[in-house]
Amino acid sequence: MIANAGWLLLWGVVVGLDLICVAQTMVSRPLVAGTVAGAIAGDPVAGMAVGVILELFALEVQPFGATRYPDYGLGAVAAAAAAAGAPAILGTGVGVSLGLIVAFVGGKGLHLRRIRNGLDVDRHLDQLEQGNLRIIYALHLRGLAREVLRSLIVTAFGLLLAEAIRRWAPLTVQGAVYLGIVTLGAAVSAAVTGAIRLAGRKSAQQWFVLGLLGGLVGLMLR
C-alpha cells in the first residue's frame, strides 16, 4: 500500500490548482511536485529522480495561449508514489513511465475542463451582459471547483495505477531497465529540443551550446 495516500491526494489537488488556476507559484513543476510527493511517500530521493526526468520533459512545453499540454505535475506525483522505496533505476523507469501516462490523462482533463468552463460562460452570457456580480463570482468559483475535481480524479487515477504496478508489476527486471533507459533518453531529447526552441533564432542557439559546454566543464570539475 502506498504510504500516506491521503496526503498525496491532497498534494495532487494543490499541484493541480497551482498549474493554472491559483497563484502559479510553480509547485506544479515536476521537480517540486515529484520531490515533495516522494518525501510524503517516504522516499524524497526517488521523488526527486522522477521529478528531474519529468522536469526535462516539461522544459519542452511552451504553454502559449490555448495550447494543449500534458500535466507533468500530477504525473510527477503518481510517478513518485510508484517509485518510492524501489531500487534506483528500476523504480525510476517504471515511475516515469506511469508519470507520462498520468501527464497525458491530466492534459486531456485540462482540455475537458476548459470546454466545461466555456460552456458555463455561454449559458450565462445574458446575466454577464447585465453585469451580474453574483454570476461573475459563481463562474469563477465553479471554474476552481472543476479544477479541484480534475486534480482529484487524475491524482486518484495515478495513485491507483501506482498501487497496481507496485503489487502486480507485469514486468521483468530487464523490462524495468529498458523503461529506465527509454524514459531517460526521451527526457534528454525533449529538453534538448525545448532548449533549441527557447533560443529561437539560429544565431541565438549558440547560447545553448555555450551552456552545454559550461555544464560539461562543471561535470569534469566535480
Partner: peptide
C-alpha cells in the same frame, strides 16, 4: 530566450550525469 537556452544547456550534463 538565449538566457533560458544557456541555462538549460548548463543543467543538462549535470542532471544527465
Amino acid at each position: 530566450g538565449p538566457m533560458a537556452a544557456c541555462a538549460v544547456g548548463l543543467a543538462l550534463p549535470l542532471a544527465g550525469a
